[in-house]
């Protein structure tokens, strides 16, 4: 079970990292949301995995899970929401100020196919500089 959870955390992280590295604001926000999931589950798992032993005092229960990581993660979840809200509005703000949703405020990113061009633009050479980054 631990292996399974570890892999879940890993996959969440990987997807989060990939989306965070994208060039448009919306995927970045989604990526950070995914990363927040990964981090929350990771922190939660630091209290080790226990099944069926919630930390609600009950003399009939044999033992309890570790309540401390849970308390920390609970606030972390809410804070992550606050962060997401702030970021997405920041993204809107940059769209309204700059007129586009590129993270660097570029109207025409050199390594993208523009929004309005439906046709494939394979002939267009990617800008070396930008793609190396």
């Amino acid at each position: 079970m631990e292996l399974l959870i570890a892999i879940v955390i890993g996959v969440l992280t990987a997807s989060g990292v990939f989306l965070t590295l994208r060039a448009r604001t919306f995927p970045v926000v989604l990526g950070l949301t995914l990363l927040a999931y990964a981090v929350n589950v990771f922190l939660f798992a630091m209290g080790r995995l226990t099944i069926g032993l919630p930390a609600v005092i009950n003399p009939a229960q044999g033992g309890y899970t570790d309540p401390l990581p849970q308390a920390l993660v609970l606030t972390a979840i809410v804070i992550a929401f606050g962060m997401t809200a702030f970021l997405i509005v920041l993204a809107l703000k940059s769209r309204s100020e700059l007129g586009n949703d590129h993270v660097d405020g570029l109207h025409l990113a050199p390594d993208e196919v523009p929004y309005d061009k439906k046709a494939t633009v394979k002939s267009q050479q990617p800008n070396k500089e930008a793609s190396h980054g």
Binding site: D111, V113, Y115, K122, S131, G133
Partner: peptide
């Protein structure tokens, strides 16, 4: 609603 509904395709394979 206020953002483009799609992300443009990237052609920078290296990135």
């Amino acid at each position: 609603y206020y953002l483009p509904q799609k992300t443009p395709r990237e052609i920078g394979k290296i990135r």
